[in-house]
């Protein structure tokens, strides 16, 4: 969605600090995520990019010693507020992980699980539609339409990952978080996911953590570079990869990290 040619801000992180016990993992992160754009988060291992991603749907809640401070505003609502309904939040903010992790159930059940617990379908027919639409959006329908009642774990790695994306979009999230979604996939499956990301951004806001600089460059419009828990630089992807402002960013993306 654009207003006066400027993309609307979907998520606004303000002064976010994260601690694992006494160790501080993120330092004063301020980042606006634009709506219907793909934002890539890059940085060396342990830089905090995945930690930041997990703040956006409160996945860090499951880690006892993890403490998140600061505001993360989505749709004018600070999700770190006590009153935040985390189940509703995760309906709005889907997630796809590094390793494809379909439920040990049929393809159909993989997709229908979310919509059914959120009460999104009133009848079998409505559920069938949700399953079909989700699989079509994930560019998997043609490959699996005749075997919807076979186990999801029987698919290839690339298909499993698209199944997980279909599962994520079945509840119509506004935002999709992706944590290295292609790192376990071959180049063809990777290209299919990247094409999918391009399509999905029309209806969703996407944030992707990736170790592949080339992938960040290919799929994203905006890129943020994290280093040692700080957001060093963020901006337009083509600017970051052609002429970054910060030396650390340049050293990282050109393979000069000491």
């Amino acid at each position: 969605m654009k207003k006066n040619g400027v993309n609307m801000i979907k998520i606004s992180a303000k002064n976010v600090d994260v601690f694992y016990g006494k160790k501080q993992a993120l330092f004063n992160i301020n980042l606006d995520i634009e709506e219907n754009q793909v934002t890539a988060l890059i940085g060396p291992s342990g830089c905090g990019k995945s930690t930041f991603l997990r703040c956006l749907n409160r996945m860090n809640d499951v880690i006892d010693i993890c403490k998140v401070q600061g505001e993360i505003v989505i749709n004018d609502f600070n999700i770190n507020d006590k009153g935040c309904d985390v189940v509703r939040l995760r309906e709005k903010i889907g997630m796809v992980f590094q390793k494809p992790n379909p439920f040990p159930k049929t393809l159909y059940e993989n997709i229908s699980y979310g919509p059914s617990i959120h009460g999104m379908a009133q009848s079998k027919q409505e559920m069938d539609e949700i399953v079909e639409i989700s699989l079509k959006k994930a560019a998997l329908w043609e490959e699996v339409k005749d075997r919807l009642h076979e186990p999801g774990t029987g698919l290839s790695g690339g298909q499993q990952q698209r199944l997980c994306i279909a599962r994520a979009i079945s509840v119509q999230p506004e935002v999709i978080l992706m944590d290295e979604p292609c790192s376990a996939l071959d180049p063809i499956a990777t290209a299919q996911i990247e094409e999918l990301i391009d399509e999905l951004k029309k209806e969703h806001t996407i944030i992707i953590v990736t170790h592949s600089m080339a992938q960040a460059a290919r799929v994203s419009q905006r890129t943020g570079f994290f280093h040692l828990g700080e957001l060093i630089e963020h901006g337009l992807t083509d600017k970051i990869f052609k002429n970054p402002d910060n030396t650390k960013t340049q050293d990282y993306i050109t393979g000069r990290f000491g």
Binding site: F241, N243, Q250, T254
Partner: peptide
């Protein structure tokens, strides 16, 4: 090598 940034330039 897929050069980036200063290397690309």
């Amino acid at each position: 090598r897929q050069p980036m940034a200063i290397d690309l330039r």
